[in-house]
Amino acid sequence: MVTYDDYVNKFNDDLEEEEFDILLSSSDEIIRGFCESFISKFSLKENFDEYGIDIDDATLFQINFIESIGGVAAFQGQSDLQLESVSTSGFNYKYKGGNIQLFNGVPLSPVAVIKIKGELRRKNYLQRCVR
């Protein structure tokens, strides 16, 4: 499990520890669910730790990403990625998520996705055959 110190050491960010704790809980659940979505239903385990998958780094990147796009609101479908259009005199801005992957409606950090898929591949959970 990651800690606030792990986060600060990696990102040197000014995220408050209280907000980190809130984001950690939801980020950890999303990352675990995303990992299990790739694992055959015949290989699912009761305890996530039994998979031997290291998701700490992916969780840190997910926390950092979620914090950067609106924080806790992003887990409720209200991220900054939802901005559709802003206009003022001489300025127009429109953004709609781009190629950001969603899992159950929650935006996933692109770096976290890469790290998760790499870890799953190393642990042979991304094989195409049924065991």
Results as ranks from 00 to 15, higher is better:
residue 127 Q to E: 15
residue 97 G to Y: 02
residue 124 N to V: 06
residue 87 S to D: 14
residue 105 G to W: 09
residue 78 Q to D: 15
residue 57 D to V: 05
residue 56 D to W: 02
residue 103 F to R: 03
residue 24 L to T: 03
residue 83 L to D: 07
residue 36 E to F: 01
residue 100 I to K: 04
residue 41 K to R: 06
residue 92 N to P: 00
residue 75 F to A: 04
residue 95 Y to E: 12
residue 63 I to Q: 09
residue 55 I to R: 03
residue 69 I to L: 12
residue 31 I to Q: 09
residue 124 N to D: 15
residue 71 G to D: 08
residue 110 P to A: 11
residue 81 L to S: 07
residue 52 G to N: 13
residue 65 F to P: 00
residue 126 L to H: 05
residue 66 I to G: 11
residue 40 S to K: 05
residue 86 V to L: 15
residue 120 L to M: 06
residue 24 L to I: 01
residue 74 A to I: 03
residue 130 V to A: 13
residue 67 E to G: 08
residue 39 I to D: 07
residue 87 S to I: 10
residue 125 Y to L: 06
residue 49 D to P: 00
residue 93 Y to C: 09
residue 23 L to Y: 05
residue 87 S to E: 15
residue 97 G to E: 13
residue 114 I to C: 02
residue 89 S to Y: 04
residue 53 I to Q: 04
residue 88 T to A: 14
residue 27 S to W: 03
residue 37 S to R: 02
residue 38 F to W: 02
residue 29 E to H: 10
residue 36 E to C: 04
residue 88 T to P: 00
residue 27 S to F: 05
residue 75 F to R: 01
residue 75 F to L: 05
residue 53 I to C: 06
residue 123 K to Q: 15
residue 115 K to D: 09
residue 37 S to C: 08
residue 105 G to N: 07
residue 76 Q to G: 11
residue 127 Q to H: 07
residue 106 V to E: 12
residue 66 I to L: 15
residue 46 E to S: 11
residue 69 I to K: 10
residue 24 L to K: 11
residue 104 N to Q: 15
residue 114 I to K: 07
residue 120 L to W: 04
residue 32 R to D: 13
residue 52 G to E: 15
residue 102 L to G: 01
residue 43 S to F: 10
residue 48 F to D: 13
residue 90 G to C: 03
residue 49 D to C: 03
residue 109 S to F: 06
residue 38 F to I: 00
residue 123 K to H: 12
residue 86 V to A: 15
residue 57 D to Q: 10
residue 66 I to K: 09
residue 59 T to W: 03
residue 37 S to P: 00
residue 22 I to M: 12
residue 40 S to Y: 09
residue 46 E to I: 06
residue 89 S to A: 08
residue 43 S to C: 09
residue 73 A to W: 09
residue 59 T to E: 12
residue 47 N to L: 10
residue 100 I to S: 09
residue 55 I to E: 07
residue 130 V to M: 12
residue 105 G to Y: 08
residue 89 S to F: 04
residue 83 L to K: 03
residue 97 G to Q: 07
residue 22 I to Y: 10
residue 104 N to S: 14
residue 61 F to W: 12
residue 71 G to M: 04
residue 114 I to A: 11
residue 100 I to A: 11
residue 71 G to A: 07
residue 42 F to M: 09
residue 86 V to W: 14
residue 107 P to M: 10
residue 90 G to A: 06
residue 130 V to W: 08
residue 36 E to Q: 10
residue 125 Y to M: 04
residue 112 A to D: 05
residue 71 G to P: 01
residue 93 Y to D: 12
residue 110 P to K: 06
residue 124 N to E: 15
residue 73 A to S: 14
residue 45 K to P: 00
residue 48 F to V: 07
residue 103 F to C: 06
residue 116 I to R: 00
residue 71 G to R: 01
residue 73 A to D: 15
residue 54 D to P: 02
residue 36 E to G: 02
residue 82 Q to M: 13
residue 28 D to S: 15
residue 41 K to C: 06
residue 118 G to R: 10
residue 33 G to A: 14
residue 69 I to S: 12
residue 84 E to D: 15
residue 89 S to R: 00
residue 84 E to M: 10
residue 55 I to S: 06
residue 62 Q to G: 03
residue 130 V to R: 11
residue 91 F to S: 10
residue 35 C to I: 01
residue 87 S to R: 10
residue 49 D to H: 04
residue 69 I to A: 12
residue 41 K to M: 10
residue 121 R to G: 03
residue 109 S to R: 01
residue 77 G to Y: 14
residue 76 Q to C: 11
residue 79 S to C: 08
residue 75 F to D: 07
residue 109 S to M: 05
residue 38 F to P: 00
residue 108 L to Y: 10
residue 130 V to T: 09
